[in-house]
Design a binder for these strands. Sequence first.
DNA 1: CGCCAAGCGTACAACGTTGTATCGCCTACT
DNA 2: AGTAGGCGATACAACGTTGTACGCTTGGCG
Lengths: 339, 339
Amino acid sequence: MSTTLHDVARHAGVSIKTVSNVVNGLGRVSAATRERVLASVAQLDYRPNLSARSLRSGRTGVIGLAIPELSLAYFAQLADAVIEEAEQRGLVVLIEQTRGGDRTREVELLRGPRRQLTDGLIFSPFGMTEADTELLDIGSPLVLLGERLPDANVDRVTMRNVEAGAAATASLVRIGRERVAVIGAHLDARMGSAVLRYDGYVQALREHGLELRDDLVVEVDLWHRSNGAKAMRELLARGEPFDALFAMNDELALGALRVLQEEGIDVPSDVALIGFDNVDEGRFSRPSLSTVDPGRPEIAKMAIDLLLERIDGVTSDDVAPRELQSTFRIIERESTQAA
Amino acid sequence: MSTTLHDVARHAGVSIKTVSNVVNGLGRVSAATRERVLASVAQLDYRPNLSARSLRSGRTGVIGLAIPELSLAYFAQLADAVIEEAEQRGLVVLIEQTRGGDRTREVELLRGPRRQLTDGLIFSPFGMTEADTELLDIGSPLVLLGERLPDANVDRVTMRNVEAGAAATASLVRIGRERVAVIGAHLDARMGSAVLRYDGYVQALREHGLELRDDLVVEVDLWHRSNGAKAMRELLARGEPFDALFAMNDELALGALRVLQEEGIDVPSDVALIGFDNVDEGRFSRPSLSTVDPGRPEIAKMAIDLLLERIDGVTSDDVAPRELQSTFRIIERESTQAA
DNA sequence: CGCCAAGCGTACAACGTTGTATCGCCTACT
DNA sequence: AGTAGGCGATACAACGTTGTACGCTTGGCG
C-alpha cells in the first residue's frame, strides 16, 4: 500500500490537513512546519492519490483527444502537439480512436463512461452527420476540430481552408500551370475541409481566369494513401490532360505521386504537385512535396485554451461558442519547382 | 451535477447498493428490481463516477504507454495497436512521450505522480542506461518493450532481432548481392535493437561466406529519416562499392532511398534495399520498400497480457520476470526485386 | 493587565463508490 | 408445524483527499 496523507501527518506530527496544505501550497503554514512536513513527504516518498483528489475536486487533470486514426501521420503529429501543449499545463491526454470516423463509434465515445474520466474533450468528428448535432450536447467541455457539424453549439478550432485551398491552387498557377486537377473532393457534402478546400480551388481558378473542368476533379472518400493512388489512376484513365495537381492532403498526394512515377510522368516538370498538411514524410519523398502547413502547434494550443477556459469556468456556459482559426503557410518544395 | 447512485436509488425506490449491484452485475438481484433499476438508470442517464470507483477499488482502468515520439510512424502504429488491444479489454491508454528518449524525462516519467493515475505502464526505454536499471523498480506493474536495460527485473516483450536481422540480410544475399551495407548500427552499445540486428547481419554474412567490411557499416544515433539520408551520403562518400543495403528501420531506409535517387543510383537494380518495421509508408514509396514486419498487433497483445496478469495478481510479484517474443516476417517488395 | 486580531493548525464532513455484515422473508425439508 | 437455509435487499464503513468551520496561541495595543 502506498503512503497517504495520514502517514505523512503522523510521521511529521501534524494534522492531515496541514500536510495537504503544504503539498498544495494553500493556507498559511509556518516555515518550520512546512520544512518538517516536506521532509516527511520526501522520506516516505508520498505521492498524492489522484483518484481521491479527483473525487474530491471534480477534476481529473486528464483531457480526451478523439481522432479518426493514430496511424495517419497527420493525426499522429496532431496528437503529439496536443500532448506537448497539455503537458505545459500539467495535463495529460487520453487518446481515443474513432477508427476512420465510424459514426456509431463517435456517438458511443461522446456519451460513453470515459467522459467521466476526462475534464473535457477535443474531438475531430468525421462520421457524424448534421442530424447528430444535438448529440454533441454532452455535459462536459468540448472543442471541435474542423468544420464538420457547423451548426453545433460548441467551441471550435478550424483553419482557413478556403484561403489555403486557393493559395495552394494559386501556387500551381503561379509557376505557369493552366490545367490544375484536384483530388479529394466531396462534392455532395455540405460542409467539411473537402468542401472548403474545393471552394478555394474553384475561387483561385476563377481569379486567374482558368476554366473549371469537371473531369479534372476526382472525388475521394477517405483521404488515405491508397485512395490517392486509386484517384490518380482514375484521373489518368479519363484521358483529360493536366499539368498540375492539388491533393487535398499529403497522404493523397504521396499515393498519387507513386502512381505518376509508375506511369513515367515526371513531377514537377510534367505535373506539378502540392499537398496539404505538411506531414513529415513530404520532406523526404522524391521529389519533396510542396504542401500547406496548417499550423498544428497553434491548433493544439488554441484547442486546449478554449477547453481550459470552459473547464475553469473562466468562460461561462452561456457564452456563445467561439471559433479560432490557425494561420497557414504554403511550403514550396521540389514538387512545385518551376520548370 | 451529474446523477449518482444515490439519485438512481431514490428514483427506483431501492438501496444504493442494490443499484451498484445491478450496474456491476454483482450479487443476486431479482429480475423485477433489476428491471426497475435499469429503467431509472436510463431515465436519469446515470454514468458511474470513475474517480470514486477508482478510489474505492484501487484500479483506474487506465494503462500508460511511454514511447519516444508519437510522430515517428513506428510508434504511432504501435500506439494504435496498443489502444486497440486495450479497448478489447475495457482499458484506456494514456500516452506519454519521452521526446527522443531523454534520460531525465524517462526517469521523471517513471516516478512521476501520473503513475498514480495508471494501473500499469508499458515502457519503451531509450535514454536510460544500465546504471539506471534499479529505477525501474517502481511499485506498479511495468512491461518493457525492446531489449534495452537487459538486467532489469521486469517483464518484457521483444522480437527476434538477431534472427530478423539475419533474415533481412539473407534476403539481400539470396538475390545475388555480395556487398551488403548496413546503416543504423550502434557499435559501442552493449544491448539494444541496433546491436542485435547488427549481430544478425554479421551472422548472415558469415553463413553465406561473405566478408564483413567495416566501411560498409554506418553508425546512426537516432533512427530518423534525416539521419538515414545523412548516413547514405556518408556511405557514398566513402567510395566503397556496395550493391545492397540493410537499413535498421524503415525511416532510415526511406531517408537513404531519397539520397540514392538523388544520386541517380537505381533501386533495386544498382542497390537492393530492405528496411525494418513495416511502416505503412513503405508500401507506397517508389520503389515500394521491402522490410521486416515485427508483428505489432502481437507485440501489443503480449505487452497487455503481461501487464494485466501482474495487475490482476494472476502472476504474483515474486514470479520471475518473463520475456515474450513476437514472430517476425520478411516482406518482399520492389526494393529487393531480383535484377 | 486584559482583550482582540491575526496567524497557524485542527476536527469533521463530504465527494461517489463498493465490500462486509446483517437482516427479513419465503421456500422447502424434517 | 417448526426451522434451516438461501435469496434479496439493506445499512454501514471505508477508500484518500480537500473545504469549512472552528479553536488555540501569541503579540500588540488600549
